[in-house]
Amino acid sequence: MEELPFMLVKEIGGPSGVVAEHEEFLKKHFRLITLKEFMEDKTHFSERITCIFGWGVKLKIDQELLQSLPNLKVIGVAGAGVDHLDLKMISTFGVKVTNTPQEVTSATADLAMTLLLASARDLLAGIQVAVSPDTETYPLNWMSDEVTGSTVGIIGMGGVGYKIAERARAFEMKILYHNRHRRKEEEERAVGATYCEKVEDLLEQSDYVILAVTLTSETANMIGKRAFELMRPTATLINISRGAVVDHNALVEALQNGSIKAAALDVTFPEPLPRNHPLLKMKNVILTPHSGTATHHCRRRMMMKVVDNILAVIHGQPIPNEVFQK
């Protein structure tokens, strides 16, 4: 019987490891080696490990690790973003990188709309009214906003951004979008989206601005003081991309001085924020723990696509989702 490929993982189970319920499936295809096992017996494992399963930034992949894995062929990333990896350095070792962009789109778009709706309807404050021991009657003058008929501006119209547009259309929202490359006209018509060549035009017109871009040198801190000055004082910023896309100091200032109304963030920089960070204490901010893909179905799809990608590399077959250095 042919020996299974050896796969390096951070750990199995726990907050940083391979999801425990995925272990059985993975063990059908790989011999799983935890980082602890590897560090305790490098001599035995270093030449046998041919692949790495990477969940986000949980397993640090640096030059020292790669030098200790001479037969490594592929790093399979569970997720779309690879900004945490030094692709140029990895490529010098002849190692391929794969990801799972299609598998994350629906769940992440669902969370974007969850944050939009929760912020618009002031859900956190409403819950407090409902559960407060001081509440004797529900006040008729407690009101929030509805999204029907409002304008959402989506910055980044890739797979996730387009899924957000599909959901926004169902809420009868006016949809604007900005992207490096304009979508085909038939794709725009399908969701009723209008292209803004200049991001400034989108910022000025939107009631809700959703960030769905990848993190690059061009998008880092793209939403800063100037962007907040352009946004409406009644606008809400929603970020489900990467925390570093937003200048957090400028965001705090904009929320404090009323340049924008609110923010709903699934991602921050750093993650998590320091426990004394101002954003943690603001009533007009919703924070979630980078949970865009955190559903049972989504995480399983991601895991299975990682397996497909890695096995394709190992067996010399066409790779479904290879990441190339730009």
Rank of each mutant, 00 (worst) to 15 (best):
E3I: 05
E3V: 08
P5R: 09
P5D: 10
P5M: 11
M7V: 02
V9M: 01
V9N: 01
E11I: 01
I12H: 04
G13C: 11
G17I: 02
V18Y: 02
H22Y: 12
F25M: 12
K28D: 11
I33V: 14
K36L: 10
F38A: 02
M39Q: 11
M39L: 14
K42Q: 09
T43M: 06
T43K: 14
H44I: 06
C51V: 08
G56W: 15
V57D: 14
L59A: 03
Q63E: 12
Q67P: 05
N71Y: 07
A78V: 12
G81A: 12
K88A: 13
M89S: 11
I90R: 10
S91T: 11
Q102I: 07
V104F: 03
L111I: 01
L115F: 00
A118P: 06
L123I: 13
L124C: 15
A125R: 09
I127V: 15
V129N: 06
A130W: 07
D134M: 12
D134K: 15
T137I: 14
T137S: 08
V147S: 06
T151Y: 06
T151C: 07
I164L: 04
E166D: 15
R167S: 06
F171Y: 10
M173H: 03
N179A: 14
R180Q: 09
E185R: 10
E187H: 15
E187V: 09
E188D: 12
E188V: 00
A190I: 02
A193Y: 02
A193M: 01
T194P: 06
T194M: 07
Y195A: 04
E197G: 09
V199A: 14
V213D: 10
L215A: 15
T216Q: 11
M222Y: 09
I223F: 00
I223C: 01
K225M: 10
A227S: 07
E229S: 12
L230K: 03
M231S: 01
T234M: 05
T234C: 00
A235M: 08
G243R: 01
N249K: 08
L251A: 01
Q256N: 06
N257S: 13
G258R: 03
I260C: 00
A263Q: 04
V267Y: 11
P272F: 08
L273V: 02
P278H: 04
G292D: 06
A294K: 09
M302T: 04
K305N: 10
V306N: 14
V307S: 08
V307A: 11
I314S: 12
G316P: 04
E322N: 07
K326S: 12
